[in-house]
Design a protein around this nucleic acid. Structure first.
Lengths: 209, 209
DNA sequence: TTTGAATTTCAACAATCGTTGAACTAACAT
DNA sequence: ATGTTAGTTCAACGATTGTTGAAATTCAAA
């Protein structure tokens, strides 16, 4: 069995993702982790600290593989600029592939990010803290791929991208209802096939001069 | 001063939007509403019922004006089909205009919807219950505007639209950080100018045959 | 075998939670 | 004036909340 600290993080990740920070009690988390309540305060400072550690556990790895994907795309274009599709693919595909290939390990974390990204309270602050350095790097690449575009158009385009991506992470099952079962929230392969093309067309339309 | 029931709904709407259903206590709501705690249970059955009434208070009006906007677009095209931009405009503009023109009245409700749409727990169920009849009506219109398109492409395109729209509703301030102040989450006029074109280009790219 | 540190258990704290019943006031019909 | 009803206040219920201190256990190093 996993060491206690990991089991607590796993349980907290899943419960926070489903019911939010305040919708889950330490006792529920520790019951799911099969450990005594007090151990939460031996391994973590507080409930808030536990939440932060859940976030931090995976964020660096995600930023790493996404940066590497962008660098590889740029390495493939030593003389010209990569296309918008390639850049957006490097931004989204590492995340989506992870989710498609190891769903059990990543789905709850992604659901948590979906929730935070759309949380009016401190969503902007948290997402900026964890992801903005990487995102700025991608936006710079997009700026070069879309020369003479208005920066405001670019930021709003990224905003639309962010909303589309994180709603995918939420896996709410709504598209299952809407399509009468023809589409499934958990069918990430379908998203990998469609999202980069959809978003790249939007970027090119909005940032065309 | 507003009647008590309205004040409770106003307070609950704002607090639920900011901290989620379980992140807010009845006592906090009633303190903000400047009314006794017990009045919550005189005017509503339970906390859950209060939440439902917050949702229901505005949803019918929203569905009405959006349906009317679609019908007007279709009336303008008695012989041919409306464009994708026109349909998406009818879907999004009534909502965004309301938010732009009467921000204080609508922003909290929209933030609540953003949160629910991205909630893995019962987000899909709730959104489907309140909005799917209207959404199906719009998707039918889009089907006619994009003949011979694969229905799965259409549903996934709508999914991306939904994510982009509701992240706008969340008004998290993240785009403010990311753009160094050049863009503002609350600047809905900028979204009205950009979102229909961005999304229509995505739809046409993905659903082109 | 003794020591000391890391880990776990148990019991409890004040505060807050959603909810309820009974009493009280206001306004209005008879 | 009397009765009825809608609206409001007050006090309290058992349950659960996040958190803590001290005791018990485990386990490797000395």
């Amino acid at each position: 069995m996993h060491p206690t600290r990991e089991r607590i993080l796993d349980a907290a990740e899943e419960l926070f993702a489903h019911h939010g920070f305040e919708g889950v009690s330490i006792r529920q988390i520790m019951t799911k982790a099969e450990a005594d309540v007090s151990l939460a305060y031996y391994h973590f400072e507080s409930k808030k600290d536990l939440f932060d550690q859940v976030m931090l556990r995976r964020v660096e790895y995600l930023n790493e593989i996404r940066l590497k994907a962008l660098e590889e795309v740029e390495k493939r274009h030593p003389d010209d600029e990569p296309t918008v599709e390639e850049i957006i693919g490097a931004f989204t595909r590492p995340l989506l592939s992870l989710l498609a290939e190891d769903h059990d390990q990543w789905s709850h974390y992604y659901q948590l990010i979906a929730q935070i990204n759309n949380s009016p309270d401190r969503g902007g602050e948290l997402m900026s803290r964890y992801f903005d350095p990487l995102v700025s790097r991608f936006i710079d690449a997009l700026k070069r791929a879309l020369p003479d575009s208005d920066p405001e158009d670019l930021y709003w385009s990224y905003h639309f991208l962010s909303g589309a991506l994180t709603l995918t992470f939420a896996e709410t099952g709504r598209i299952d209802n809407l399509s009468g079962g023809a589409c499934k929230s958990t069918d990430i392969a379908s998203v990998i096939d469609r999202m980069p093309a959809f978003l790249a067309a939007g970027f090119r339309q909005l940032c065309k001069h």
